[in-house]
Each structure stands twice: as structure tokens, then as C-alpha cells.
């Protein structure tokens, strides 16, 4: 565990806490994409199947459980909570995510490190995570008034990805046999997806304006 990895994980954790707090405090999930949350649920379920087969550390297990539990909580609130579900932007959140899921799964069947159920599902989760934020970014683009917390949520998620790249560079330089090309390429793609958002986020912050993304 190096400082970049820890900082990245913490950003990921903070992003989820920000989202939970926002929805819970305002009783509203306005501007939050249910599709992105459901994609993350698929990502976490497929990736953390190893909770049942291998133990890495208490830290690792705890974080996995937090990510799973929090994502399912958000989905439950958005779908079933009496007050919150009414605030969901159903008509705006129309990204057809089956067009992300199917190609990612087919790619995982072809491009993987080992052709086993666990490893294919793990690889699928890596590919799917790279594009899981897209429905959220599209929804933000359609929302005129992005509230601070939703903006911060996406910014923290993007920071987590950027820090993971530094983590990989650090590990590559310090660990003799550390290589994971599929993860690196997907991670770089995932970070590139955020660049446009980062630009407008930082600009609105410097100019002290409300964040809005051009259509």
C-alpha cells in the first residue's frame, strides 16, 4: 500500500459519502444517475466475488463491503424510498447502458488473463468501470443547475482514478514483477473520460461560478 493508492481509495470513499449525505440530507437525488449507480453495483458484485475465495487484508475486505453496501443503499433509495424516488430525473437519465454492458462483457470474454468464470467477470468489471460514469456525465450535461455536491461527487471519483494511475506508476517502479496491462489501459481510458469534466469543474471553481457543462 503506497500513499497514492491510499489517497485514491479515500477519494473513492469520500465520493460515496458525499453522495449518501447529499441524498439523505436533502431527501433528493436530483442530478444523480441511477444508471451509473446500477453499473457500479454490477462492477462491484462482479469484481468482489473474491470476497468468498481469498482474503487479502481487513482493509481490503472492509472497503469492498462498504462499496457494495453503499451502492445498494443509494439504488434502494432512488428506486423505493417514498420521498427520494419522486425526485429522480427519470426522463433525463435515459442512457441506454445495455450498450455498455454487452460490449464490455464480450471484450472480457476475448481479452483476459485467464479464461475462468471468476477472472472473466473480474475483467468485465474492470472494463465496465471505465465507462460506468458516462450516464452520470450525460445527466449532468442535461441538468442546468448542477448542485455543488453532485459536482463534488464526480470530481472526487475522477480524482480517485487519477491517483490510481500514480499508484500504478509507483508500483511499477518499486515492485519487480508488477504488471497489469488490461487494468492500466482501462484505467487510463476511464481517467480520460473525466478530463472534460475536470476542465469545467476547475474553471467554475476559479471563477466562483456555478458549475454547468456545455451541451
Amino acid at each position: 500500500m503506497n500513499i497514492f493508492r491510499l489517497a485514491g481509495d479515500m477519494m473513492h470513499l469520500f465520493s460515496i459519502i458525499v453522495l449518501l449525505l447529499k441524498i439523505n440530507a436533502t431527501r433528493s437525488c436530483r442530478g444523480v444517475s441511477l444508471k451509473t449507480q446500477e453499473l457500479y453495483a454490477i462492477v462491484f458484485v462482479c469484481r468482489y466475488l473474491d470476497l468468498f475465495t481469498s482474503f487479502i487484508s481487513l482493509y481490503n475486505t472492509t472497503m469492498k463491503l462498504i462499496f457494495l453496501l453503499s451502492t445498494f443503499t443509494i439504488i434502494y433509495w432512488m428506486r423505493f424510498h417514498k420521498v427520494i424516488r419522486v425526485t429522480y430525473d427519470r426522463e433525463q437519465d435515459t442512457f441506454r447502458y445495455q450498450f455498455l454492458i454487452l460490449p464490455c462483457f464480450l471484450l472480457a470474454l476475448v481479452l483476459n488473463n485467464e479464461f475462468s468464470a471468476m477472472e472473466v467477470l473480474w475483467t468485465f468489471s474492470i472494463y465496465l468501470e471505465a465507462v460506468a460514469i458516462l450516464p452520470q456525465l450525460v445527466l449532468l450535461q442535461r441538468t442546468n443547475n448542477i448542485d455543488n455536491l453532485t459536482g463534488n461527487y464526480v470530481f472526487l471519483l475522477g480524482s480517485y482514478r487519477a491517483l490510481y494511475i500514480l499508484n500504478w506508476i509507483y508500483r511499477f517502479m518499486t515492485e519487480p514483477n508488477y504488471r497489469q496491462y488490461l487494468v492500466w489501459i482501462s484505467g487510463i481510458v476511464q481517467t480520460i473520460v473525466y478530463i472534460d469534466f475536470f476542465y469545467y469543474y476547475i474553471r467554475s471553481w476559479r471563477n466562483n461560478e456555478k458549475l454547468s457543462l456545455p451541451a
Binding site: R47, I56, N60
Partner: peptide, 10 residues
Amino acid sequence: PGEGPVHDEL
């Protein structure tokens, strides 16, 4: 073999 690679990142 059979166990598959261990993934230590989240």
C-alpha cells in the same frame, strides 16, 4: 492453478 490471479487493488 485453478485459483486464478489474486487482485489486491479495489
